[in-house]
Simulated assay, not measured.
Amino acid sequence: MLLSVTHSTRYTFADPVAHGLQRLRLKPKSTHGQEVLDWTMELTGARIEAEYDDQHHNHATLISIDDGARAVVVTCKGTVQTSDNNGITGLHTGHMPLWCFLRPTALTRAGNKVRQLVASVDADRGDRLAFLHALSYAVAEHITYEPGLTDVSTTAEQALAAGKGVCQDHAHVFISAGRFLDIPMRYVGGYLKMDDREEQEAGHGWAEAYVDGLGWVGFDIANAVCPDERYIRVATGCDYGEAAPVTGIAQGGGVSHLDVQLSVAQKLLGSSQQQQSSESGPLQAGQAQG
C-alpha cells in the first residue's frame, strides 16, 4: 500500500525561549516491509544541529530552538510503500542485544496488577505465539480504550489499576507482562491509516514480542489486529520514552502549548491501486493479534 503522511507539530510558548533542544524521531526508515520513497522535514523557529541513528537504530534529528522564539513548528511530509507481512517484522538486528528488551523500565515494571493479569491468562506458555495472542486479548479486556485519562508518564501498573487508557497503555501492559515471563518485548511508535478518516489527533503505538523462529511479531492491542500494510513503523524502544516522536528541554518560554495535526492517507496512482485497505480477517498462526 502506498501511504502519504503529513505530520505537523507546533509548540507555542508564553514567553521567549532563551535556549532549547529537541530530539525528533519522526523519519521512518526503509526496513521491515516498508520503503520510504520520499520524506521532508521543515522547521520554523528552530534549526537542525545533528542527525544520527540512536541505540535502537531509529533515525534521530537534534534541533536547537532559535533564541527568543515563541513557537516551534516541525512539519514532516512523505510517502511510504508498505506491505503486509502478517505482523512479522523479522529477525533481530541493530545495536541492542535481545537481552536488553527483557529489562523492566520505569514505565513497564511488573507489579501485583501485571502479575495477576499474567496468572489469569489460560493458555499454554510453551506455545509462545499462542500465549501472546491470549495475553493480548486479556490486556484489551482489562483496559478499555478511553483517551484523556492517562499520559506519557502513566505506568503499566497505573493503567491496569485505572482500567482505562490508550494505545500506549495497552502496549506498556503487554510489554510488562511479557518481560515478566522473560519474553523480549519492545514498543513501536509510528503511523496507522485509519479506515474511516484521514485526519488524526496523534500518532499510534503498539508492541512487538520476539518469537523464536519468527523474530519480532507485532501486536496492536488497541485495534485488535496484527499490524499490516496500513502501518508505518517510525521508532522502537524499550518503552514509549525511547521511541517518543519529540523530546526536549527549554529554558525560559514559560507555559507551552502543543498542537498536532496529522493526516495519513492511501495514495492512489492508478486503477490497480484503488483498492481500499483489506479488512482484518481471522488471525492464523504466525499472525499477531491485538
Rank of each mutant, 00 (worst) to 15 (best):
A14I: 08
A14T: 12
V17N: 12
H19P: 00
G20N: 09
R23H: 12
R25Q: 10
L26A: 04
K27E: 12
K29F: 06
M41R: 15
E42C: 10
A46K: 12
A46Y: 12
E49Y: 03
A50P: 02
L62C: 08
I63V: 15
C76N: 15
C76H: 14
G78N: 13
T79H: 13
N85L: 09
G90S: 07
H92A: 00
H92I: 00
T93N: 08
K113A: 12
L117N: 10
L117R: 01
V118Q: 01
S120W: 12
D124P: 02
G126K: 07
F131D: 01
L132K: 05
A138S: 10
A140R: 14
I143W: 11
E146V: 00
P147K: 03
G148D: 05
L149N: 02
L149R: 04
T154E: 03
T155Q: 10
E157P: 01
Q158F: 04
Q158A: 14
L160F: 12
G163Y: 15
G163C: 05
K164P: 05
V166G: 01
C167W: 11
H170W: 10
A177S: 05
D182W: 06
P184V: 05
P184N: 04
P184T: 04
R186C: 00
V188P: 01
G190E: 06
Y191R: 01
Y191W: 06
L192K: 07
L192M: 13
L192S: 06
D196P: 03
D196L: 02
E199F: 04
A202H: 06
A202D: 14
W206P: 02
W206M: 05
E208K: 05
A209W: 01
G213C: 08
G215R: 02
A222Y: 06
A224V: 10
C226Y: 09
P227V: 03
E229T: 04
Y231S: 03
I232P: 03
I232R: 01
V234T: 08
T236Q: 06
G237N: 00
Y240T: 02
G241A: 05
E242H: 11
E242C: 06
P245E: 02
I249K: 02
G254W: 15
H257N: 11
H257W: 11
H257V: 13
L258K: 13
V260Q: 09
Q261W: 04
S263G: 09
L269K: 08
G270V: 07
Q273D: 15
Q276D: 08
S277N: 10
P282I: 08
G286A: 00
Q289N: 09
